[in-house]
């Protein structure tokens, strides 16, 4: 492989990492409160608001059921509004974040619903406010599951990021299509796949390790 190609692969890897990292970060920032709210706002729950819960739930489902490539195209005006342009790596972060947020929210909702209701009752019996219950009980207790969920979200985002080449976003997927496929360069294709495998493996094992360290439930004396 020529140094030129190696430089391209390095650049594409950096683009992918940037897009995924920013989208995952923003998705978590938005998805965490949304997920917590979804998990605590049904009838009789801490922040009971059944109507809003239903509306947000439907919105989340609608976003999640739209295929990513269609979402990218469908929200181009929104992307332009946020990023100033609808083309390029920075612009690609917008649809990635829009796709990541409801996904992460659902994962966090699931993690929080797994927390034993007895702990919520115990916290209430101590006089905790709903916000204290979320901050001191629900999120810390759900943290190992949240970390595993975020790991899954990052891996999915690595896959999604391969599609943003369609709107001029860079990254490994784009490189694989343009060089590996359209220019018949199987070595580039192989390199792209190899880098993606390494990235996914690394993310997954880091996430697993972190979740295990945070999980105090399985320890024994």
């Amino acid at each position: 492989m020529s140094p030129e190609i190696i430089r391209l692969i390095a650049q594409a890897t950096a683009d992918t990492l940037l897009m995924v990292a920013v989208a995952a970060g923003l998705g978590t920032l938005l998805g965490l409160p949304l997920g917590v709210f979804l998990a605590t706002s049904k009838r009789g729950e801490l922040f009971a608001a059944p109507a809003l819960n239903a509306v947000l739930g439907t919105l989340v489902n609608a976003t999640r059921s739209t295929p990513f490539i269609i979402l990218v195209v469908a929200i181009i005006p929104f992307t332009r509004l946020i990023a100033g342009t609808s083309i390029g790596t920075n612009a690609a972060i917008v649809p990635l974040t829009v796709a990541a947020t409801p996904f992460i929210a659902r994962l966090i909702e699931g993690a929080i619903r797994e927390v034993d209701q007895g702990l919520v009752e115990a916290a209430r019996s101590m006089g905790a406010t709903p916000v204290q219950i979320v901050r001191k009980v629900l999120v810390p207790e759900a943290l190992p599951a949240i970390v595993l969920g975020l790991t899954l979200a990052v891996v999915s985002l690595l896959g999604f990021s391969a599609m943003v080449g369609a709107v001029g976003g860079g990254g490994l997927g784009d490189l694989g299509i343009r060089y590996g496929y359209q220019r018949f360069m199987p070595d580039v294709m192989a390199a792209v796949v190899a880098v993606l495998i390494v990235l996914v493996q690394t993310v997954q094992s880091l996430g697993d390790r972190l979740a295990r360290r945070l999980n105090k439930r399985l320890r024994h004396a």
Partner: peptide
């Protein structure tokens, strides 16, 4: 009002309800 009162009332449970993360 109940929250203030609960801070002066202790409660223990059949399944202990301890936080596993603490």
């Amino acid at each position: 009002g109940w929250r203030a009162r609960r801070r002066k009332t202790g409660m223990i449970f059949q399944h202990f309800n301890l936080l596993s993360s603490r």
